[in-house]
Design a protein around this nucleic acid. Sequence first.
DNA 1: CATGAATGAGATTTCATTCAT
DNA 2: CATGAATGAAATCTCATTCAT
Lengths: 212, 212, 212, 212
Amino acid sequence: MSQVAEPQRRRPAERPDEILDAALEEFGARGLAGARMSDIARRANVSKGTVYLYFDTKDDLFRSVVQRTIADAVATLNEAAVGATAEERIRGLLPSFWQLLRSKRFEIVYRLVYAELHNFPDLMRFYSTEIAGQVSSFIADLIRAGIENGEFRTADPDVTARMLMALCIKHATWMARPDLFPHASDRTEEQVRGDVAEFFFNAIRLQAGEPN
Amino acid sequence: MSQVAEPQRRRPAERPDEILDAALEEFGARGLAGARMSDIARRANVSKGTVYLYFDTKDDLFRSVVQRTIADAVATLNEAAVGATAEERIRGLLPSFWQLLRSKRFEIVYRLVYAELHNFPDLMRFYSTEIAGQVSSFIADLIRAGIENGEFRTADPDVTARMLMALCIKHATWMARPDLFPHASDRTEEQVRGDVAEFFFNAIRLQAGEPN
Amino acid sequence: MSQVAEPQRRRPAERPDEILDAALEEFGARGLAGARMSDIARRANVSKGTVYLYFDTKDDLFRSVVQRTIADAVATLNEAAVGATAEERIRGLLPSFWQLLRSKRFEIVYRLVYAELHNFPDLMRFYSTEIAGQVSSFIADLIRAGIENGEFRTADPDVTARMLMALCIKHATWMARPDLFPHASDRTEEQVRGDVAEFFFNAIRLQAGEPN
Amino acid sequence: MSQVAEPQRRRPAERPDEILDAALEEFGARGLAGARMSDIARRANVSKGTVYLYFDTKDDLFRSVVQRTIADAVATLNEAAVGATAEERIRGLLPSFWQLLRSKRFEIVYRLVYAELHNFPDLMRFYSTEIAGQVSSFIADLIRAGIENGEFRTADPDVTARMLMALCIKHATWMARPDLFPHASDRTEEQVRGDVAEFFFNAIRLQAGEPN
DNA sequence: CATGAATGAGATTTCATTCAT
DNA sequence: CATGAATGAAATCTCATTCAT
């Protein structure tokens, strides 16, 4: 009888995630110091007090935002790279790596990491081992295999892996900020990805008749 | 309404530059919102009020810091790239480009630009045309020449220029923050520069007997 | 970034009014520029921040102080002026007009209006139409009636209304500031009011046998 | 030979007056607290330091501004009031009194006195005895003579003098601020002065056949 | 659990005043 | 005498954090 359209009251289990989403946006837009707890709360549709129910301080919230995204990103890493040749396996890996780099969430966190991780040494360590380390050695392994089976020119696999990462990360950054970096505004997402792959394999592919 | 000032002892024309230097450091260490005008003043060995003698607001100071560095960087661009072949000319250009990227001042401003230029549309335009645009087309011209004279594989010169820039910028970034990006901590500055050059020219050099 | 707040103890709806009262006092004592937000807060028994919860800026607070008092004053105007003759009706109006002029709140706001309304054109318009306009034409109407029924000498009713207002306002001002204007320090409130009324009616009363 | 159009260098004797003039304007426009020493200096075409050569503090400058104007005003008082009857003598006095009240300088100082003299007890005393006292008793004397020679109705001369002052001051104020007090915007300066005089003498003139 | 009024430390900015030149 | 760069106390305003309800 008093059951009249009394809308959603609470969904406690989702609260923290909603707050983290809101925080990601605000930190992304204003930076750590510039973002306001009250704006984060408003964006998450909760009161200021509620944020403090789940996160002790602003720094703690920031930490959680970064950590969650890093963890998610690492999970993405499990994508199997399949294929007959090393090149095929690497080509298979690229789309999901690219997708990660181009996701809004990662774009923001990458920027925050770059700009603000100074004062969070623990987060810094976490980031550098989890992301930087894992991806790098994953790719390096594929390259090493390609060198060993004669597909690729002899070179330091780690060094070469970094070349690929540099190309991908920087181009993804540029695509994400056409305002700041209008470099490639004439090319599509797919074209850019193709450009990078072509360039990369041109650099490492063993040419016919070339001694290794 | 009453002070016991113990005022100035010199009045050098370098005041503004000293303040800009101090501001660069503080903005670099804490970001735009995080840096305190009082710390900037102290670092510049002047009082808080003096900063406001030369810069109207914090934002204005930030603007000036970025602008000055961009202007300096662009000036660096005049380095003539000399050499007989296109490859030689590009190799000649690399050291000064690399030096710019690795300079403390540019590293900081690049980070600030990346993190905070959001709210400074005019600066954004300035940056993207001055730096991004100029450097990019300068390199593209060299590559185009190399393609035309048969040194390099046929490819879009602009696309290829961006490959070089991506490799250089990202590796310079990594070298500047070994804490965050410990990728290449086993290699020296020169080795990294050599790695990048080798990789780049392998990708674009026209192989003997390869049709173009 | 860390506080040991020892916060609120009640949350009455009267907060804004308490702050307005405190602000009135401080603005009255020191003027707009001279009053300090911290003093206003202390006088209202709230913290500095609380004032900003209700009023955006100092100017906004000033505006509200003036506006509230003007609105209250205008409300006072509804006092019906009753009596058989025009003179009786005017005499009936005088006490409440006088009381308004002599109220502490109005005295202060009148002074503030006089000294600071320069920079608040909207408030200025509000004040001049609400107060100056309304009171003036209200009195003029009573005088016009008296002229028409032969009680008063023929004269411009608006001009005559202003004579009454000038007498009342200035004498009220003098009574309020015996330090600055020691003119009438030998006479009581009631005597002054009587002096003004006698003088005024002597000026406008049609003498027996005088042609009109 | 080097005597080329090298403009006015200094006129030390006039400096203090120029500064006082500038200060009057600024204090008038912004109030005591709102006026800035630097603006006063600029308006006087001198440097900030120069102001302090002549006046110890801002308060001191304010004091001097007020004092000079009061002294000038008092000097004006020496205007002899001549005429055969008391009414003629009073009518003769009115123009110069009105002129004083309507002078820009006095208008400003009167406002400053009203708004800011709080914190200057000595100035307050000076003002109230010099201006208020002198003018008041000067007029009262004329009225007393008129009562004694049968021109005016019997009344307290001091009380009656204040009536005249109230009428003049308030109307002058209104004329000076047509924005704030648009009361009499339809009447000319001369009309208003005539209105006041007519009204005043109607109130005090002994009517034919009226017992005194 | 959730709220949001209240707090107050601290940041930006202003400006009267000084004094080396 | 005159200057104006420099000072720093003090004012306005912000916002992370708390806690009574």
